[in-house]
């Protein structure tokens, strides 16, 4: 597989990879780094990449695992001085400014969800994957995915209703 074929394969997926990384890592810089690293990882394993039936699911799955590893590393090594340690888990003011109040609010609510819920919410409600694909990416069974998704949706709605009510009072 050469350069161009590979880039053609990556192109439709790279935004989705980035958005998932952004959902999990929150900071834009960390998400960009993660996406770049995952693409490089895939490129180095390009001979194996052909063997996967659902290439897109595989790529997303690698991204997911990479980001979770990053989060674990960040958690385990509070003493290491790397820029990811300085990202607090709030959205940067820069990104907040790009979003409207309402969007920022939902972004914040989603940010509070457990990682598994974030992932499944991202994959289903934003990227519109079907349950089969999500099962392939997360290695979870379909009923478990539905339950997790339902929890995420309910939680987001509840939090939104709360803030809406505060707004009225």
């Amino acid at each position: 597989m050469n350069h161009h074929t590979f880039l053609r394969l990556i192109d439709p997926v790279k935004d989705k990879m980035f958005r998932l990384a952004l959902r999990l890592l929150i900071s834009k810089e960390a998400a960009e780094d993660a996406t770049q690293e995952v693409i490089l990882k895939l490129w180095n394993r390009k001979d194996k990449v052909k063997d996967y039936a659902n290439l897109e699911a595989f790529m997303i799955s690698v991204t997911k695992n990479h980001c979770l590893d990053q989060l674990k590393a960040r958690h385990n090594s509070n003493l290491r001085i790397i820029h990811t340690n300085y990202d607090n888990n709030e959205l940067s003011t820069h990104r907040l400014a790009e979003l409207s109040d309402e969007m920022a609010q939902i972004e914040r609510i989603v940010g509070m969800l457990p990682e598994q819920q974030k992932i499944i919410f991202q994959l289903r409600d934003i990227e519109e994957y079907d349950y089969g694909e999500i099962a392939e990416i997360t290695k979870l069974k379909e009923p478990a995915i539905r339950v997790t998704l339902s929890r995420a949706r309910k939680k987001i709605k509840e939090e939104l209703l709360k803030t809406h009510r505060y707004g009225i009072k």
Binding site: M17, Q36, L40, I126, K157, H164
Partner: peptide
């Protein structure tokens, strides 16, 4: 349904974020 309206708008808008950096394959 106001909460759902915000949520669905958010979901649609979130899909527009793009990876804008150049892909580098040669490390």
């Amino acid at each position: 349904f106001i909460a759902y309206k915000s949520l669905f708008n958010f979901n649609v808008a979130s899909r527009n974020i793009e990876y804008s950096k150049e892909i580098q394959l040669n490390s």
